[in-house]
Simulated scan of single mutants.
Amino acid sequence: MTSTVDTPSRWAVPVLGFGTFAVGTCEFVLAGVLPQLSDTLGVSMSTAGQVVTAFALTCALVAPLLVAATAGWRRRPVLLLAVAVYLIGNIATAVAPSFPLVLAAQVVAAAGAGLFVPTAAVTASALVPEDRRGRAIAAVTTGFTAATALGAPLGTALGAVSGWRMTMWFVAGLAVLGLLGVLRLVPADVAAPTPESLRARFAPLADRRVLVVLATTLIGFTAVYLPYTYIAAVFAPATAGSGIRLAVLMFLLGVIGTIGNFAAGGLADRIGGRKVVALALAWLVVSLLVLPLTTGSFGLATTEIVFFGIAAFAITTPQQHRLITLSPGSASVLVSLNAAILYLAIAASGIIGAIGIEWAGAQYLGFIAAALAAVALLLSLRD
């Protein structure tokens, strides 16, 4: 990877992290406004949940094609295009009169989000010396954690007070700030990396250990996002339908998840990512098994959120640590593959959760998620 940047702003990498925060907020805030979507658009909760599935599937399946199509462009035009597409999609969502049009608009927004995130990671790594590239990529991906901790709760609270359409305008506003930040602070002369053939891009998948780690990400994060995607339905008894209480739970989950993620990263440096992931998944299984017992009161719900949140996002950094350790020379490719798998997990959570709600009820999603986490734990131990 080469760059022709002369003197990049010291704020260039942070603004790329903010951009990731902006595009991540849309996906995560959708879970908080599902009740409003369901009510105002006349669809069931499980049907409304498919907006999360559509967003995530687009990021996982369409975005890699867009990344390949823009591989030869300089980085800033790609970033600006990505944010602009994302912005258009969210404005269209805010004014869409029906659920099918909301789905279509979110597919557009997701195409922009999916193009932005890997491009931002590559751009960040090109802006710093080689020995700081890992930290630069981490700074960008931390935007997702911030979206969970801050963006989604704020958007959920706003939706509770002013309706879900105002939430989408809030998300669009974040996109405008991200667009201006990229235009002002990211250098125009960041060169594109040397284009890779599809064979080279997917060569790491020939390593069985890489496949096992990616499978662990897929199943483990499906377990994490199963209760998160339908958090409004799962904790409905505890929140009594209050959007503000739901926002508090989401904020608490995001803060605890951020702490857990940073702690897990430091622990992975000391004892290795494999052990940290195994510990986090075992903790996750226990927290999901007790989840159905904690949805009856707000006090129990907050305790469960803390317990669940410590493990839920403690998997993120150690999984990336494991992949980079397996093949340091393919780090950027492996991180992008892991991100695509993460989106697939979010999409799977929307589908599996909808089926679970229809068959057994939202209160039992914790048991389904616990079974998935147990499978992920077994897979993780095979590496």
Rank of each mutant, 00 (worst) to 15 (best):
Y86R: 08
L185R: 03
I352S: 12
L342D: 09
R322I: 03
G49N: 02
A12R: 01
F235H: 00
A264F: 04
T316C: 09
A191K: 05
T303E: 07
I231D: 01
N261H: 10
L379Q: 11
A124K: 03
Q320L: 11
A96E: 09
C59W: 04
T295F: 04
T148F: 13
I271F: 05
L291I: 08
L326Y: 12
E304Q: 14
E358T: 14
R184P: 11
Q319P: 11
A120S: 12
P153A: 03
T58M: 11
M168Y: 01
L281K: 12
S242P: 03
Y343V: 05
A263G: 15
L281H: 07
P97H: 11
N261K: 05
V375C: 09
V276Q: 11
L179Y: 14
A56K: 00
A223L: 04
L179G: 13
R184L: 13
V171W: 09
Y225T: 07
A203G: 05
V52W: 00
I351F: 12
G114K: 12
F308I: 12
I271Y: 08
L377K: 07
W11G: 08
A238D: 05
T141H: 13
A314G: 10
W11V: 15
L344E: 02
P64G: 03
A373N: 11
R135H: 06
G42D: 02
A314W: 09
S9C: 06
V52H: 00
D131S: 14
L334M: 14
A263Q: 10
A369G: 08
Y343F: 13
L41K: 01
E196K: 09
L57N: 11
T47W: 00
G155Q: 05
I315E: 12
R75I: 01
G89P: 07
A146K: 02
F235P: 00
I259D: 02
S46W: 01
A82E: 09
A120N: 03
A105W: 00
F307R: 07
A120L: 08
R75K: 08
M166V: 14
V140C: 12
A369F: 13
T70S: 05
A68M: 13
L41Y: 14
L211A: 05
V102Q: 02
G254C: 02
F221A: 01
V255I: 15
G114Q: 03
L80M: 13
L185F: 13
V276K: 11
S380Y: 07
A63E: 08
A104F: 06
P193K: 04
I357V: 13
A84V: 15
F99S: 00
A191F: 03
I324M: 14
L249T: 12
